[in-house]
Design a protein around this nucleic acid. Structure first.
Lengths: 193, 193
DNA sequence: GAATTGTCGACCAGTTTATTCGAATGCATT
DNA sequence: AATGCATTCGAATAAACTGGTCGACAATTC
């Protein structure tokens, strides 16, 4: 097709859907290929590996979310709740990547209630990983691709970032600054700025 | 635990969730076991095979749907649309088994529009299989467990049943009779009456 | 304390999987 | 038409995974 980069995007969109539903491990190259109406081996002309595709998908989705959130911050007028709602809605677009989607919505918790709930049950390290899972989708990524340099770095970064307060819900603070801090923590090292 | 039959139900409920999300093939015994906090091999004390579990799940879900639909028929007062709506809502409870869930709702089609859409694209045999897929969930069941006697029979029965009109949408008929006929076709041989 | 009921880890044979590679196909330029 | 380059694919493979078995152990019941 016309353009190599354009074709990569096609793959990202198509594979992203499959990944988001089945997770990294359960998604096979053959499945991705079939969705693209291609031979399995042809994909390797555009991507180095399955991980490579997944990485591209996560990057793509994370970038969208980052932009959405940034826009959200700018468009906030004042009340916390309004903003929370806005951010929450935007979150959904990213959560489609997440297997925790159901856990969140089945229980009718919003994103923040959900995080606060699990927060009580896990210690810091586990929570950090959970956050990574929730925001960067794909529990499977953590468990199956953990040996990749890239992911290992992302986890490390997230662990460090734990110092930045994530939970502002009931506190009065400068929200804009805080959200920006969170964005930095969440996406530092994940999304090229 | 207390009761062998009770434990089977626990498995059905738990495994059902996993099956409904990942399909038959992509769901592993280990996953089912982990969800039950058991060793993989222990499950074989209660079920003969993976197929056996899946069959139990489908039976369980189909029975619920059958009951719901039967109730729906009885509670219908008159207008077609009201009934369609009611049945449609009930359908959802079963559709969670179906991988076509997204196809239906992403496109904002209702169940009947959806079926009519695909009807134009497929011949009778394919349509029959599609129906089986849609109503009994699990595309994977058809493609991967097709060698099981049980499923083969179900497909045969469904093929035969094609003579009973499924699409009454724009026609004036005795709805109650027709729905009953459909129920018989759909579940004959699948759900023990 | 023996018999039954339930659980599990280790293991196996068969299958699936990601990835490679060389050959085939198009497709433009000379 | 011959050359070179860009794409696609089928076949092959080594590694990982899978459903299912089996015998040993633990718990419960008699």
């Amino acid at each position: 097709m016309i353009n190599k980069e354009e074709f990569r995007k096609k793959v990202i969109l198509s594979a992203g859907q499959i990944f988001s539903h089945y997770g990294f491990k359960k998604t096979s190259m053959e499945e991705i290929a079939k969705a693209l109406k291609m031979g399995k081996s042809s994909i390797y002309y555009y991507f180095e590996s399955k991980e490579d595709i997944f990485e591209a998908v996560v990057l793509y989705e994370a970038n969208i979310l980052r932009n959405d959130l940034t826009t959200a911050i700018k468009s906030v007028e004042s009340p916390i709740d309004k903003m929370k709602k806005y951010v929450f809605v935007r979150m959904k677009s990213f959560e489609k990547l997440s297997n925790y989607y159901n856990a969140i919505f089945d229980k009718n918790l919003d994103h923040f209630d959900f995080i606060e709930t699990i927060r009580e049950k896990y210690d810091r390290e586990e929570l950090a990983i959970l956050r990574l899972i929730i925001y960067h989708g794909e529990r499977k990524k953590v468990f199956n691709v953990v040996n990749s340099e890239y992911t290992a770095m992302a986890i490390q970064t997230t662990l460090k970032g734990l110092e930045v307060p994530l939970f502002w819900k009931k506190k009065e603070v400068n929200i804009e600054n805080r959200l920006n801090a969170i964005l930095d923590v969440l996406f530092y090292g994940i999304v090229k700025k």
